[in-house]
Design a protein around this nucleic acid. Sequence first.
DNA 1: TATTGTTATACTCTATAACTATA
DNA 2: TATAGTTATAGAGTATAACAATA
Lengths: 157, 157
Amino acid sequence: MEGRGIATRAGNGDDIALGILDDLAGYHLRRASSVFANDFARALAGTGMRQVLFGILSIIAANPRINQGNVGRALGIQRANMVSLVNELVDRDLVLREVAADDRRAFSLTLTPAGRKIVAQCVKLIEAHEARLLADLSAKERTALIAMLSRIEAKEA
Amino acid sequence: MEGRGIATRAGNGDDIALGILDDLAGYHLRRASSVFANDFARALAGTGMRQVLFGILSIIAANPRINQGNVGRALGIQRANMVSLVNELVDRDLVLREVAADDRRAFSLTLTPAGRKIVAQCVKLIEAHEARLLADLSAKERTALIAMLSRIEAKEA
DNA sequence: TATTGTTATACTCTATAACTATA
DNA sequence: TATAGTTATAGAGTATAACAATA
């Protein structure tokens, strides 16, 4: 079965058969996701932003005064790992961290003006980056792609 | 614009707006890919296999006597990082590493009988794992998904 | 000179367990 | 007792630079 023998691009012009990998959605998700991650890093190099950090800022932008734990839950980031990520954003004055009014254990997170500014800046760069990588897909296909990915996400254990 | 305000599953039943993230293919690729990676680990826990290692075995299966550098190039793995990965596979007697006949700098990699056996074993588990995660997609959709992901992979820098 | 594999190193991401302070 | 955040730590994955052997 690995003998389908269809040689595919190795990403560098060589022709190396992938074997069964070539039929696995998991493999292609991994590679496509990595292409996006690399291009994201390149596109946003000037801003010092990473995918995770932008994700956190986006959630906070859409949910002012959200608490830290809920941001992590929305993004699948462990409590323990949120700490240094939020520290980074607070240290860079992009996020305001306050003790939550209703629960003194929790932190309420809000974007600072600088945070809102960098998000707007990133959104422009990210839109160009997405347009570049999705150039070979029609509008309908992009919508269908995101819809299928969402259905896969829903399978999360 | 982050104010679309459409609350989406946070993966845990909560309802937290994702903001602009929800419209980004890059974000959904990241999450869907992570769902696949986690489920892969769970499904293959017994075998001691990981996504990268299985990828390497699959390439070697499809290209007996392929050299180490080409395996890395096909999978986007740096030369330097291939070393310990191949060591693992050789130590577990899944891969035979020989000095290449035509180029004494290079190593030629081939599956051992144990390697072929574990690949066959993993393929069964992986097919069940893929069927589970893609259960909500029709056969046509699965084909379309992989085709779109391949077009994205081709954008690799 | 260029390439194959190697070593050393560092950074990010992720995962777990144990702690504190509140609830 | 349970939860929010923290600390410490460890394992993967990934990236770069410098080296030896061979081409």
